[in-house]
Design a protein around this nucleic acid. Structure first.
Lengths: 181, 181
DNA sequence: TACGTTGATTAACAATAGTTAATAACGACT
DNA sequence: AGTCGTTATTAACTATTGTTAATCAACGTA
């Protein structure tokens, strides 16, 4: 593999730090950056007609974050992406990445595997979880799959991610705790 | 754009016809073909520990069908893909497609847009539907999005896809009908 | 025709989730 | 310390779903 495209890639990768509450991608934006969480926690949510924030997904360390409304559908983001903790990310513009990888077959694998596959794999796993599991099983699986999120994010965020209400999540936690005694 | 790679592509695209019940991809298979439904209906399901078939997804005309366990995770398929009606498909092997598109930057767009995006877009839309909507809203959306599936597939398949029981789906249909009177 | 299978509906009941409201715990801020 | 706002928990109630079983209709087949 040639060194030149790798250098070109590295020149385009930025590191950034966000403070808690700071916005990475705002609603309506066509931001095409691809983020990779090095440390911290990113929250992705939408605002419903009652002006409530409904959390769609949480991204802890080692997870890719991307504005899929824009990158997949070429539409403005319906979601807001904010840092929930002080968060450090790697970041590269999608078009820049495409330009570099298009000219270098050896980097195509990186492109396919790194950017897309991880996020897409998570998406399909999540569908299976939502279709095949009960809310209670879903919560237990979430705790297993993302042990480093629980206790860092409020329960109401996690309830939204699981597609249930915070009240119901509280009862589920109670049921599980009671059963284990 | 050069004509050569397009010819190469066309040489590798096959058309096939499946009879009702015929298997396209069996459980445990590492089939890497990409199908596109020209006419008919493909059903994707898994078999649970009680030997019940749980339908995961239905693919009518104009939809891409792919073994995502293998193509995304490089694992054997957990699902069976069968024809529910007499079904005609286009079909190309993923590796053959990669080989052709890798050598032709102009075809990369086709690769990204055709194969992946459609299926991935559907996946993300489905997550939003499962997380944000009630089962009843989900059914109404499904009827809107896939009017050509309802009345062609048994309700029990559709109930599985929506993540509810057939009994519950029957009640939902009843509720909706009652409300409209 | 008679039989068996399958799928949809309905009923009855238990379990769970949604909704609303009250309360308690906690932290931020003055 | 006191106040405010947020979050989690709990209660009370309603609505919905899951589960099981019975019934009915449709279909293919002996």
């Amino acid at each position: 593999m040639k060194i030149q495209p790798i250098l070109s890639l590295l020149r385009n990768v930025k590191t950034r730090t966000y403070q808690p509450g700071e916005v990475l991608i705002s609603e309506g934006s066509k931001n095409k950056e691809i983020f990779y969480v090095r440390k911290g926690l990113i929250r992705c949510f939408y605002v419903n007609s009652d002006a409530d924030e409904i959390t769609f997904q949480l991204f802890p360390e080692s997870n890719p974050v991307l504005n899929f409304h824009t990158l997949l559908f070429d539409e403005p983001s319906k979601f807001v992406y904010t840092a929930h903790e002080r968060t450090k990310v790697y970041c590269i513009d999608y078009d820049a990445l495409m330009k570099i990888t298009r000219d270098n077959a050896n980097l195509l694998e990186l492109n396919r595997s790194f950017i897309g596959k991880r996020a897409i794999k998570q998406a399909f796993m999540r569908i299976e979880s939502l279709v095949f599991l009960t809310p209670e099983e879903r919560y237990e699986k979430y705790v297993r799959d993302y042990p480093n999120i629980v206790n860092r994010a409020p329960d109401k965020y996690i309830a939204n991610v699981l597609g249930i209400t915070p009240v119901s999540l509280s009862r589920i936690r109670n049921r599980i705790a009671t059963r284990k005694k």
